[in-house]
């Protein structure tokens, strides 16, 4: 006999359950969780290296590094004297909540205010996987071109903060800032925008200060 089952179960349901567990852990420990996404090489790790120097003097921060393979990025962060956990997805193109939950087990949560997660370099897949984060940041670098906003709209639509990196290279490209701003407004009118050069350290203090104040406001409202 044939049986028909009306299921209605989301393929992301179990990820969302794990994300809820992470939110619970963060609430319990008064931790602010940030998910940083970009295409490969946009400068996530460089941005973290530069910003951590500043952040660590104000708040207690740890980093979770997502990569398909190697511990290179976590090593770069550890070299700054920051606690870093490396996650390797062994081929998967995004981090999921289960992996981040495992990384949480390796951190002393009670001693932290902020955890920064560097997602796998990819502008498509990570957008679908909630990590239980409080803030989503997308990074775009000048050399990728301003059309990436309209080519990968979901990523930019779901973020709350946008960092335009490698601003030092602007004079050498045909990157169109005006078009970028127009497209950003129509895809996500509430996005907060910062221009930075992680390489030269430009704009790093401004966005770090903003992050610190977001974290502090959040902690105040939670406690």
């Amino acid at each position: 006999m044939t049986i028909r089952v009306e299921l209605g179960t989301s393929l992301l349901a179990r990820n969302e359950e794990m994300a809820a567990e992470i939110r619970y852990l963060c609430q319990d420990n008064n931790i602010f969780l940030v998910n940083i996404m970009s295409s490969p090489g946009a400068g996530k790790t460089t941005l973290l290296e530069k910003s951590l120097n500043f952040l660590k003097t104000h708040i207690k921060v740890a980093v979770i590094e997502g990569d398909i393979a190697t511990t290179r990025d976590a090593d770069r962060i550890s070299a700054q004297g920051i606690n870093a956990v490396q996650l390797n997805t062994n081929g998967a193109c995004h981090l999921d909540a289960r992996m981040v939950y495992q990384a949480f087990q390796k951190l002393d949560l009670s001693a932290l205010d902020l955890i920064l997660v560097e997602n796998i370099g990819n502008l498509v897949c990570p957008a679908e996987f909630d990590l239980g984060e409080n803030l989503r940041i997308v990074l775009l670098s000048i050399t990728e071109g301003n059309d990436k906003i309209v080519k990968y709209p979901v990523m930019f639509r779901d973020a709350q903060m946008f960092l335009l990196n490698k601003i030092d290279l602007l004079p050498y490209t045909d990157f169109n800032l005006a078009e970028l701003e127009k497209d950003l407004r129509t895809i996500n009118s509430e996005l907060e925008v910062f221009h930075v050069s992680a390489r030269l350290g430009l704009g790093i203090e401004a966005w770090s200060n903003r992050l610190i104040s977001i974290v502090r406001n959040h902690r105040r409202s939670e406690s």
Binding site: T2, E6, T9, S10, R185, E190
Partner: peptide, 21 residues
């Protein structure tokens, strides 16, 4: 207006399946 919310397009679920008992 630019302030919009997505009401459909993000679905990703198994509606139903059939099989032999």
């Amino acid at each position: 207006g630019l302030r919009i919310e997505i009401i459909s397009g993000r679905e990703l679920y198994i509606a139903s399946f059939e099989g032999e008992e």
